[in-house]
């Protein structure tokens, strides 16, 4: 009784989450949704790392998740600043209309 699910099931779950994030990033036009897709992908990677950490009883996977969270926070800060910049320049959040960082 002292066991959880098979390791492969956690990997399938992480793969499904990653697929949802990748599809969101590829298909949506709104810059906010693209950023959300990237967040979902990072989250899925973290889930896979925690499961692997439990599988091999090593803490390295959990340590890596901390760094993933920091990278996600940094990415969101810069990404949202870019979104505000885009809104001021082009007046919309459509990714297709955001071509130049500097006029």
């Amino acid at each position: 009784m002292n066991s959880l699910v098979p390791y492969s099931h956690t990997l399938v779950l992480a793969g499904g989450l990653f697929f949802l994030g990748a599809a969101c990033t590829a298909a949506r036009r709104s810059l906010v949704m693209i950023l959300i897709g990237v967040e979902v992908m990072l989250n899925a990677a973290g889930l896979a790392l925690v499961a692997a950490s439990l599988r091999w009883q090593q803490l390295d996977g959990q340590a890596l998740v901390i760094f993933i969270m920091c990278v996600a926070a940094a990415e969101v800060a810069v990404g949202l600043a870019l979104i505000v910049h885009c809104q001021r320049r082009t007046g919309s959040l459509d990714a297709d209309r955001y071509r130049l960082l500097k006029d």
Binding site: P6, Y7, T10
Partner: peptide, 12 residues
């Protein structure tokens, strides 16, 4: 993943 075999249950 499912075909890889040798799939241990995760311990608690």
């Amino acid at each position: 993943i499912l075909a890889a075999g040798g799939d241990p249950s995760l311990p608690l």
